[in-house]
Amino acid sequence: MIEVVDITKSYGPKRGVFNLSFSVEKGEVFGFLGPNGAGKTTTIRQLLGFIHPDKGEAFVDGLRVFEDAHVIQQDLGYIAGEIAFFDHMRGKEFLDFQARMRNLKDFSRRDELIERFEFNPRPLIRKMSKGMKQKLAIVAAFMHDPSIYILDEPTSGLDPLMQGRFVELIHNEKKRGKTILMSSHNFGEVERTCDRALIIKHGEKMALENVKALKEKQRRIYLVSLENDKDIQKLETDGLEIVAQRDNDLEISVSGDINGFLDKLAQCRVKSLDVKHQSLEEIFMDYYREEGEKHE
C-alpha cells in the first residue's frame, strides 16, 4: 500500500534520511520509531509529496507521491508532526473548511470522533491548548473515513486517557481493514498498536521487526527496594542480573519472561517495586546489544 524505495534526502551529515526502503502492506498498522531528529518527519513529508527526495522514489497505492498527490489525497488521512492551523478560525469552521475542500457531505464520522475525544470544536484555534489542537488534527484526519492513514506523532500533547482512546480508534480502524503508518518516539504506543515497526536513527534503517518479537526481546530494568541485605545475596546467587546497587536499592535487569524474576522476588521482603523508565534509545541499545551477543 505504501512503498518507499531507496530514498535519500540529506540535510547534512546524519540529518535527513539515507537509502531508506520499506513497505507497508494493506491492512497493516506500521510503526515508525526513532528518537527526535531521526528522519521520521522527513520521510513522511516525502510520502505526502511535500518535498522531493534527492534520490529514490515512493508510492502510495501504486501512485507516485509527488505527481499524483491529489489523487492519493482522496483516500488519505494525515496528521502532521508540527501541526499548524489557520489560527483565525474556530475549530468548527476549520473542520467545515476541510470538509468543503474534500467535498464531504456525511458528517456522522466527524461527530462520532468529536464525541470519542470529548472535543469542543467551538473555541478559536489560537486559544486552544496543545491537546485540543491535537484532537482537532485527529478529527480532521479521520472524519472523511479514508483507507490509508499517515500519522506523524499522532498522540503528542494528549493526556494518557485520550492516548488510550486513540489506541482504541487505531484498533477499530485496523479491524475495518485500514492501512496505517504511524510515527512515534514512544515505544509503548507502538507496542500497543502496531504489527511491525521500523526503527530508524540518524536517517538510517536500524531494524524492521515484528512488534511481538521486539517486545519479547525487550529488557526491562526493575527498581527493587529490599528490607534486609541478606536477600540481596540470595537474589545474586539465584542468577538475577543486578546492574546497579545502592544500599538496599537494586536495579535488576530482566529480559523477556518475567515470571522467573517474580518467583524469586516473592521469597524476599520487598519494600517497593517499580519499573525504570527507559528512553527509546536505551530500549534500542539493549535490543542491539542482545542481537550482537547472539551473533558472537
Partner: peptide, 14 residues
C-alpha cells in the same frame, strides 16, 4: 507557519 499542509493535504493539485 506550516498551515499550507492543510491546503495541500486535500484532493487538489498544488
Amino acid at each position: 507557519d506550516g498551515s499550507m499542509a492543510y491546503l495541500l493535504a486535500t484532493p487538489h493539485k498544488r
